[in-house]
Design a binder for these strands. Structure first.
Lengths: 202, 202, 202, 202
DNA sequence: TATGAATGAGCATTCATTCAT
DNA sequence: GATGAATGAATGCTCATTCAT
């Protein structure tokens, strides 16, 4: 028994849009292009989505759900704050690399376009970062980490991760550098820079 | 003696384009808009620039020249590799924040669009990073820094800086966090993470 | 006992359409808009009406019924032809002002659109004018009015009334002029211009 | 020697638009239709006119200029206020019948659309009516006419004329009635209703 | 040098209508 | 009876680009 075609086509539109997004960037993807690639009429897209923005916003929300889902799993299976910090970060980066289409609209949109997405929705983005903050605070409480301003450190870690993802996605990292090794090094630095001196092996 | 008007108008086009770029993002700036703001005809723009891409490319080149100029000055006035590293990084970040229009087209363009810019030109970008590598290597030679793979570390530092600049430019850093302090903290971490253990105060 | 919902919904469609018509004008009212305001699906409207034209035609017919109903009442309660003429005219004008949505589609539609409405139906419109003609003829027979060509005079009176209604509805009458007083003056002129000289007070 | 083609095409657009307007009514005339009938591209129309509204507004202005021009001529060649009143009215009606496309957009537009035309421009419409008022006032001063409120009477005369023109244009006048004779009768009534009793032959 | 005129393809969006269920 | 899904054509408008002058 097949799934209801009603759901099928909405999904197909979303998936096709995502796919085109990676190739061309959001501004260069038109409703017509999506329709023709889906194999439906333009009107059909407008039956499922109020307008182009709302289609993109659906994608953004999906992206956040996926990212947060992944990170919650990771957080749940890592007790130790330091390890948890490292793993949450690892999966953030991995998510970006594996889902360029989601990552681009979630974090790489021009602020002009971003402003058209209800700000309230963007707050969900911080659930993801919340897990970073939590790991930092718990690490500090256990005496493992040395963190003065957990919020600022969170933003800084985000910057680090975002820089890695976005430069990889835009193919700007020099080809002589191995991405996997670079990411591993970054994760280590993220944790070690904040490690409490007493905890370090001299 | 007046400057040749030929140069004047080319400059004015470039400047106007840059200005519009910050507000609207590149895809939303049209040749017509530039022309009407400059006060010339569309044709005039096509007299000075082959097409829209080539106008943007001129801007990109200008941006790189400006960035490298700044960093060369900074590098020249800082003998100590560690300090030099910090200052070169500081000015990279500062450049991005002060020149969003340049930074956006230099480093935040969708890779699809980037591919239309002669790859060879992009190699200049690495002059800027070359100074980072040089500082790392010299720091290592002097025993101040512990750097296994200088190229990889360079890319990683770039990621860190780029993440900071691009999240600030796209207004995504949480408003509770002070940008200046965050940048200062980042610069410290960039250097300290790579500091040789023997050089650290216990 | 409730009314059959079948009738209820048909009525609701008609009423909603009328309502939207005043605000936006016929070409700017879409089936979708009606459906969404009624709270039913587009298909439902097509169940009750063959197409948009036929919906409008139903409205036109309703309008004529209403107008004629009013005028028949008025005619029945006014024996004297001159008074009757005046009152029939007064209520025509009043009807137009009170029911802009009906009046607009009955008398202000572009002739192109009008041609799609079965001409035969339009003849009913003349029942309304028939009462004007009747009053004119009777007034002449009684020696009160001086009317050479009753049909032509009927059309002329119609023109006068229609001009008043349509300029008021399209908000073109200068704001310094009081509508009620203007209408009263017009009604007087309509009768007096045709009053037999012998009947006038010298 | 031919006229500059620059002027030619703008004119051709205006003329074609006018032509299509009569046939279909304004809402049913699209830029594409005009372009294809003119034989130019859509873009060309947008080169000469900012948007559809502004094209229509140009037409409206042309219409007013034409109407006022005609009436000024008529007014200049008729000294006697009563005759002048009659002739100004005659030419108003004639103008409407001869130029349905102008008349429709000048006086028969849905108020919704009208509101998009700068109100200030519409005041020109009253120059035309101003000549009616002037004739009424002068006729009263000379003792020929009996006019209590010249402004109200002006509006009423306008209603009368507009009713005639608009019902003729929308082909609603009964076919048994001769338009020319009906207009002549109307003009007589317009003047005679307002004639001072002392001036009437008993 | 610089411009005004023109193009054709493209855009997001809306529409009246149809039809299987 | 009523609906949800779909269509295809149309709408107003903008774009990068060209080219004769």
């Amino acid at each position: 028994m097949a799934f209801s075609p009603k759901i099928d086509i909405r999904r197909k539109i979303l998936d096709t849009a995502r796919q085109l997004l990676v190739e061309k960037g959001i501004t260069n993807v038109s409703i017509r292009m999506i329709a023709s690639k889906v194999g439906c009429s333009v009107g059909t897209i407008y039956f499922y989505f109020e307008n182009k923005d709302s289609l993109v916003h659906s994608l953004i929300e999906e992206g956040f759900e996926k990212l947060i889902g992944i990170q919650e799993d990771v957080a749940a299976t890592n007790q130790d704050p330091c390890t948890r910090l490292k793993e949450v970060c690892r999966y953030y980066i991995q998510f970006g690399i594996d889902n360029p289409e989601y990552y681009e609209i979630m974090f790489m949109l021009h602020s002009d376009r971003m402003s058209r997405y209800p700000a309230e929705k963007y707050r969900r983005a911080f659930k993801s970062l919340g897990m970073v903050t939590k790991a930092l605070v718990e690490g500090r409480e256990q005496g493992d980490l040395m963190v003065k301003d957990a919020d600022m450190e969170t933003q800084l870690i985000w910057c680090h991760m975002h820089g890695i993802v976005s430069l990889i996605l835009s193919k700007r990292i020099h080809r002589s550098v191995d991405h996997t090794k670079m990411i591993e090094l970054a994760l280590e630095q993220i944790v070690e820079t904040r490690r409490h001196p007493d905890m370090k092996v001299s």
